[in-house]
Write a protein that binds this DNA or RNA. Structure first.
Lengths: 382, 382
DNA sequence: CGCAGTTTGTTAGCCACCTGTACTAACCGT
DNA sequence: ACGGTTAGTACAGGTGGCTAACAAACTGCG
């Protein structure tokens, strides 16, 4: 059972450089109302009209569509007592649709889950990678999605995949060395196999979107994901920045210190990843004898990160930096050193208060991001 | 005579988070057609219909509006011979409107000009700064705009100001140390005085827009402006990035080398500007005795620039970097060293071919950018 | 020359979408 | 009971784009 959302009658969103029809105004307004209900809790039609500037008539019309699609439910009249006809409150319906989310960013297993639209987990599945790459890896991913597909207990909104590597707008994985993929049209493969909307995106971008949707993150946010490698996801005005070659956020192999002798897998010396990948940090920590040495290792990693982030923060003037990854490693000396380095290297008076914090979303962050991607694409809820 | 563009009947463009009316579809389509005519030369109504996907009927309707506004003119039937009724060619009318542009980024004078919409200079005026700041500087700017206003020989599309410092979306100069301005609502001052649309923007952003409009620059471009200080203008998808505190592009005071002892006016050591401002470069060059030393000074400046740009290039994956400033200084060793440093410090295989080039637009680049800003805001031509 | 084929641009009728006005429904306080 | 207030819904009207159909003006061919 695939969710149809009033059939395929809903027109696509506007892409820049293309014509706009009045129909697309409707799509926009529909998304506007739905987003408002999603984020700002129960509201009446009249509330929506006041907030959007649309007339109550128009709101009623759009809402009747949303009710027909089960995306919104009436939850009784407003509590409390005040003059006038009691308002019928509307609520975003978290249960009518579900999304399948998959996270390919781990080193030993592919994780997946079915989420409802409120972000609750309906089911989980995972599969061991066991060193498989290329077609074998693809088969495992398809198998995982299939297994999750069977656990869906409502209409299926879509499938979201967060993968390491470089992914274009059409869901083609241009390059993912860890998975052994190159120019793999993952979106088409899954769309054809499961006949439903599929969104494929870089894991860091998915993570950034998760922070925006489920966390407290600002519209302009830089998210740094520390794991096997280091990747960043950048949101400007709430929208992911992909870059001209879809490689935005690939900061792991920026050289921090040309005088460094730390060798990187990419062949250069002194890349950010030589300080900041979990593996290298573990190695460095295992050599640390004292607490002071321990702290120094983490601070050095933080300094390296700060050195890379400072010019970025200055150039795009983001107000918030979020770190995602193993909390034990990132928390404390590493985050502190990163922030301190950014302060020392960028002009904070000009760029305003910069907040650097750790993500609170835990291990499911990429899965949540993948869900957010599906919701963003299908419902305009970002 | 202020151009009215069908009176004030034209609705504002869509801001995110707001309702959309069918009227705005019209605005969008109107801008789409105008942009196409502006950039891709003479086209017939049927050509426009084919390219946009709109029907010939709709195109005719919109075009009749554009003709009424004098923004488009019919320039006779298509040359050459082919079957069917000869097409009436339409051309963007460069002469019906003019824009006033002002450049406040120089150290000794304020420059201004009147441009027609084809980018030709109708008149020039300038005023010596003579050390004036604050209210005095503002008076000079108002005087300059007034003098230019009198030179306008067609309908006035608007006034564009490119200024150093930090400018918010509403044209308030939040901070411009060189001019002695703080929280100055320059847009309101000029709108009230001259009763026409006014756009105020950072000079580097204006420059980036000029490169995009008049130069050959890509939709994702990082423009670096070297002058009294160093500032950058960033375009993503053709749209300027302002940042959460409107301070995007303020990279002059990013610390390049913490071990440096080069003192900066900002109080820190080793800022990019200590290598790359024109003043510091001149000082360093005057101490250089041999050609080799000369080259080394320029290369050091280029390396400093490259070190700052590398993380930025990696993070947002821009394909093009444009340098604007004194050609004698930037060309050759400096640009070469910058590019080489970026290559060494960022993973070019992943980020694709990065082009670094010098701007070809000369001294008028900020003025042209200011004109482009006005055209972008009033006509949707970016 | 005449006629078919092609392309352009316009006219006429239709549907989608939002608006303004006016209405009913349902509550409050006096 | 009655005015005042708020919520939601009919109904007519305007705008914007679409399809269908047509007139105008050209080429090419018999």
């Amino acid at each position: 059972m695939v969710g149809t959302l009033r059939g395929d009658r809903v027109p696509a969103r506007v892409r820049s450089g293309e014509k706009v029809l009045p129909e697309q105004a409707r799509v926009h307004n529909r998304e506007l109302l739905l987003r408002m209900l999603y984020r700002e809790g129960p509201l009446s039609r009249a509330d929506l009209a006041r907030r959007t500037g649309l007339t109550r008539v128009s709101v009623s019309d759009v809402v009747s569509d949303l009710l027909a699609d089960d995306l919104v439910v009436e939850v009784g009249t407003r509590a409390g007592t005040r003059p006038g006809k009691p308002a019928m409150m509307l609520e975003f319906n978290e249960h009518a649709y579900q999304a399948v989310a998959v996270d390919l960013s781990h080193s030993t297993l592919y994780r997946g889950a079915v989420f409802d639209l409120g972000g609750s987990v309906v089911a989980r599945r995972q599969v061991e990678i066991e060193g498989s790459t290329g077609a074998e890896a693809l088969a495992k991913v398809v198998g995982l999605v299939g297994a999750l597909r069977e656990q869906v207990t409502a209409r299926l909104l879509g499938i979201g995949i967060g993968t390491p590597g470089i992914v274009d707008l059409g869901g083609v994985v241009l390059s993912a060395p860890n998975l052994g993929w190159k120019d793999l049209d993952l979106q088409s493969v899954l769309t054809e196999r499961f006949v439903c909307p599929v969104v494929v995106s870089n894991d860091a971008n998915a993570t950034a979107l998760a922070e925006r949707s489920y966390g407290e993150s600002a519209a302009d946010t830089l998210l740094v994901r520390v794991g096997v490698g280091v990747g960043a996801g950048l949101l400007l005005g709430g929208t992911p920045v992909l870059g001209s070659r879809f490689a935005a956020g690939e900061i792991g192999h920026v050289v921090v210190d040309t005088r460094s002798e730390r060798a990187c897998v990419c062949g250069k010396l002194g890349c950010l990843e030589t300080w900041l990948s979990t593996r290298r940090i573990q190695e460095d920590l295992s050599e640390a004898r004292t607490d002071a040495e321990h702290t120094r290792v983490l601070a050095a990693a933080g300094e390296a990160l700060g050195a890379v982030l400072a010019p970025i923060v200055a150039a795009i003037n983001v107000s918030e930096i979020v770190l995602s990854g193993p909390r034990r490693v990132l928390e404390g000396p590493l985050a502190d050193a990163a922030m301190e380095t950014i302060r020392q290297r960028a002009l904070t008076e000009v760029h305003g208060d910069i907040v650097l914090r750790l993500s609170e979303l835990g291990d499911d962050i990429v899965l949540r991001g993948a869900t957010a991607m599906v919701m963003s694409q299908q419902l305009g809820i970002a």
